Amino acid sequence: MRRPLAAVMAAVAALAVQAAPALAQDSVYDRAVAARLAGDPARAISLLQPWLAAHPGDADALVQYGYALLALGEYDRAEQAFADTLSLAPDYADAREGMALAAARRSNGTAARRSFILAEGALSDLDRGQRDWHELGLAASLTAGERSTLDLRGNWYERFGIRDSEFGALLTHRAGQDLWLRVGGSFAPDADFRPEVGASAGLDYRFAHHSVASIDAGWQQFPAQTIWTLRPGFTQYLGGGQYSVTLQASAAAASRRDVLVGASVRGDYFAGDRTRFFAGAASGPETDLGIVRQTTSLFFGGEVALGGDVSLLGSAGREWSGIGADRSEARIGLKLLL
């Protein structure tokens, strides 16, 4: 009986040795997934790194590693993990979705963006029998080195049968790993209702990998008066960056009027590469016509990739004004990535 028993024990031992890596993988994989889903991507990474060092061909672990990196804002490393996964398993849907999400995060302001040109038009229908407003715009967002972006714009406005043209520029510079600074200016030749000149400055600061605090200040010299604005805000990214909620306060003061204050809330859903949707509400000061007036508005819109490097943008909103007519606005645009 000893020989058969010894043979059985040897066979069991051999099977245990063969199964050990798989059992270890299940343990590491399950704990890593649980950590990531519990909102601790750093823990998931610490679990997966030694496993992947020993088993670089584990596609499932690579995908989880990529999503954990994505949650921490490590876009380059996340894209590499997803690319490595697709080289092992070209049809791995989760890896392809991860690549799209990483690209979407790059376009939401927390990472470098590709250059693009945007052509846009808007139509506003005013109540009380007043004439519609019209607007056309052309903008270009250009990368200026590895850390800076230069945004240029030109707009044509028609309000109450009067026309104005306005031109502006905004320079955004990534001053640190989590700090973005921006400064801008604008002018309108022969301005009737748009600001003759204007200047702005602001910053974004990212902390805890998924939260961004911001503040913007502006000065505009309109034909009738000078207006100052201040807008502090906070953005929280959720679901590994797939969703965001932005809260913003606003204050505006004119040389001929007391300070008005307000606030807004906006939610964004980043569905994939160049596909996003948003909706929000605001109540506070509005200065579009060179006066400070209190308004309340609801709005929604989004961007959908049409294929290649072209995207369709659209939005709609309703504004209720304490001074003047209420209005409904529809806006549509085409964006071409360069």
Results as ranks from 00 to 15, higher is better:
Gln130Pro: 02
Met99Gln: 15
Ser124Cys: 11
Trp156Ala: 13
Ala169Leu: 15
Gly129Arg: 14
Ala112His: 07
Trp133Met: 12
Thr149Phe: 01
Arg105Met: 03
Ser115Phe: 04
Ser115Ala: 11
Leu136His: 10
Trp133Leu: 14
Trp156Met: 04
Gly121Ser: 14
Asn108Arg: 11
Asn155Asp: 15
Arg159Trp: 06
Asp125Asn: 13
Gln130Leu: 15
Glu146Lys: 07
Ala111Leu: 01
Ala111His: 08
Arg105Asp: 12
Ala175Glu: 05
Arg105Trp: 05
Asp94Leu: 15
Ala139Ile: 02
Asn108Glu: 14
Leu118Pro: 00
Ala95Asp: 06
Arg114Ile: 01
Gly154His: 06
Phe167Asp: 08
Ala95Glu: 13
Ser141Val: 09
Arg159Thr: 01
Phe167Ser: 11
Glu166Thr: 02
Leu118Lys: 04
Glu120Ile: 08
Glu166Met: 15
Leu150Gly: 07
Met99Asp: 07
Leu142Tyr: 05
Glu97Val: 07
Arg147Leu: 11
Arg113Gly: 04
Ser107Asn: 11
Gly154Tyr: 03
Leu142Thr: 03
Asp164Gly: 05
Ile117Glu: 02
Gly129Lys: 14
Glu135Met: 07
Ala119Cys: 03
Leu150Met: 12
Ala102Met: 14
Ser115Thr: 07
Glu146Met: 00
Thr149His: 04
Arg147Cys: 00
Arg153Leu: 14
Arg96Ile: 05
Gly176Leu: 02
Ala140Trp: 02
Ala112Ser: 09
Gln177Ile: 01
Gly168Val: 08
Phe167Lys: 07
Arg153Phe: 09
Leu152Val: 02
Ala111Gln: 08
Gly109Gln: 01
His134Gln: 15
Glu158Arg: 11
Ser148Gly: 09
Ala111Lys: 06
Leu142Ala: 02
Ala119Ile: 13
Phe160Met: 09
Leu152His: 06
Leu126Ile: 06
Leu118Ala: 01
Phe160Asn: 10
Leu152Tyr: 12
Ser141Asp: 08
Leu142Pro: 00
Phe116Gln: 04
Glu97Pro: 03
Arg131Ser: 14
Ala144Tyr: 07
Ala112Gly: 09
Arg163Pro: 01
Leu118Cys: 05
Tyr157Ala: 00
Asp132Met: 10
Thr172Ile: 02
Phe116His: 06
Leu136Tyr: 09
Leu142Lys: 00
Leu171Phe: 13
Arg113His: 03
Arg174Ser: 03
Ala119Asn: 05
Ala119Trp: 09
Glu135Tyr: 15
Arg114Met: 06
Asp164Cys: 04
His134Ala: 12
Trp156Lys: 01
Gly168Leu: 06
Glu158Ile: 00
Asp151Ala: 06
His134Asp: 14
Glu166His: 12
Asp151Cys: 02
Leu170Gly: 04
Ala100Cys: 09
